[in-house]
Design a protein around this nucleic acid. Structure first.
Lengths: 191, 191, 191, 191
DNA sequence: TATGAATGAGAGTTCATTCAT
DNA sequence: TATGAATGAACTCTCATTCAT
């Protein structure tokens, strides 16, 4: 990636996340990136394209964090833990960007399907595979893998966002443990 | 609520949901509502205010559906089931509006906190109370109530959205059962 | 025609004729017309549409001048004289507008055919009919009517433009007589 | 002329004629010419200058065609015929370029006078001289030479353009004969 | 109370031109 | 000499908002 493209992406993340893509002008991004307005149009087709690129960039970033977290792990339980931590940490470190992603992913009618697919391919599938492994290994029940994966994703995402709204601190370790416990054991008291 | 206000709200939901609030002009809403452009400004301060009203309207709608579903129920387990069904049905019937809510809630910096608070007060709290009841009744484990409630909300929402993306059918009953099973029992195989 | 539309047309003729449509901004036209920029877009689809309207307006204006000049005339020779005078006078009074027309008619690919057709229907056909009448009356030779009409039009237009370039005065009467003589008698010395 | 300059001129004629100078970017011309954008600015001061050069190039081309057609001719009548044919053939072969010339000549305020003068010096004057010769030789009547020359030019140009608009075929020979007949003899039936 | 014509700030986008390489 | 990445002035067009009717 061209260094100027990188600077534009960084500046756009910074600005779009703070004020929303909609309320941010191309000029603001350009200024923040230290380039001319026209330069942005050399690297991105238009504003829409810039937004799309950011979304893809974000999805990719999370993907990579997840993959890194998984290195050297074999046990499905440990792997799920690693994924949860990776995602919580991402949201913890990139609160505004996370909010930007939440907002924009739902907003671009035509690219929408592409992005959802990208999330599926990059985020959901890892969870599905890991859960599948657990089932095969006899560690997990024979649950509906897809629903389980999506559910876990929902637990992680919404918890992360929720904590970021209502609390100053973001106790990753504790939150992870609670989610793990819930996802693994459920809420029912076993008699 | 004045009948004209109602027509404006209905028209705005219809239009904003289809194309996004941003890409919809006040004129379009006015035309769809069968009123003059100026009339909208009689009932709503400005476009932002209209969007806010829609969000509040949506949150309220879900709230009411939940409350209705809870009528006559006492058992925490049954109550959670009822909530899950109420929310799944809402998303099933109002796909576009759901997407609109997902998008716009994250987008309005100043009103943002208000809306999140509203969701908390109207949606999360019911879950928390119900889970709390279950714990008190000795049916649920002593989990972190807040995390459990938010997790369940995440499971429901993201599953609903996920199904709407990737599938034609939306098997509410089955999905509800899977979520219930997961939330109550977890994925771990009990030896 | 709405009075505001008229003011915009007048202002656009004024501005476009002076500087060329291309070098004139919509803002300039708006200011000259004493209306807001947006108002222009209420009456004309876009700048292109405004230019087209002006062209049509111009063609129509000449048409009307010709028709007025023909009132009460029967003799083909007199009618041709009247047409020549009407056109020369139009160019004499609207030099800049004439130049604008000359320029813009050739310039708008898609509307081009429409405008040429309009000129044909409004300007050329009158000449053709009159020449035809003269032939039928036995006053004119059996020339190719179309070529004769177009030729006369060329003589008038280019002479008018030529005089406007290189001379201060525009001796309509004399020019008309010269054109009439040429068109009626040709240049050859009859032995 | 440097070969690169020639390629730029050829490319510019090609592009400007098709889409209009205004709607053609320097980049398009550069690409079509197979040179870099900057190179154009080595040979032409700016876009305006390039357009001017093309106009001059076009006027010159017609001039040369006329001069070639006149080689070996002495009789004024034959000479006029040759000029008519040369111009008709030019328009026939370079329809788009002809349209470009018609359009751009009227459009550049400052250079405008220069170009008109150039046309006068290169095109009109030949006609004037030839007509003058004819008068001196007693073959033509003592018409106003300037008006006669300009008239003939108008007849040729507008007929050429007219035919190109409304007909597929362009019968040069026939058109030439009609114009010659008109210009020499006029339309009046001699008793 | 209801309207929609009028407005103009403001945004995205283009592209002629420059200049470091 | 030739290039094309970078620039930013300038343009068209949109649309939320106002206000006279």
């Amino acid at each position: 990636m061209h260094p100027k493209e990188e600077r534009i992406i960084a500046a756009a993340i910074e600005k779009f996340s703070k004020k929303g893509a909609n309320s941010t002008t191309i000029q603001e991004v350009a200024t923040a990136a230290g380039v001319g307005k026209g330069t942005i149009y050399r690297y991105f087709e238009n504003k829409e394209g810039l937004i799309s690129s950011l979304i893809e960039f974000g999805i990719d970033k999370v993907s990579k964090a997840i993959k890194e977290g998984l290195i050297g792990l074999d046990d499905p339980v440990e792997k799920l833990e690693a994924i949860i931590i990776a995602k919580l940490e991402f949201y913890n470190q990139h609160y505004d960007f996370g909010r930007f992603l939440m907002r924009e992913i739902w907003g671009h009618k035509d690219k929408f399907e592409d992005h959802i697919q990208l999330i599926r391919d990059n985020h959901t599938v890892v969870l599905e595979e890991t859960i599948e492994e657990g089932i095969v290994a006899g560690k997990f029940k024979e649950v509906n893998v897809e629903t389980a994966a999506v559910s876990l994703m929902g637990m992680i995402n919404i918890n992360a966002l929720h904590w970021m709204m209502f609390n100053q601190e973001f106790p990753i370790e504790e939150l992870k443990n609670d989610i793990i416990e819930l996802f693994f054991d459920g809420v029912l008291e076993k008699s």
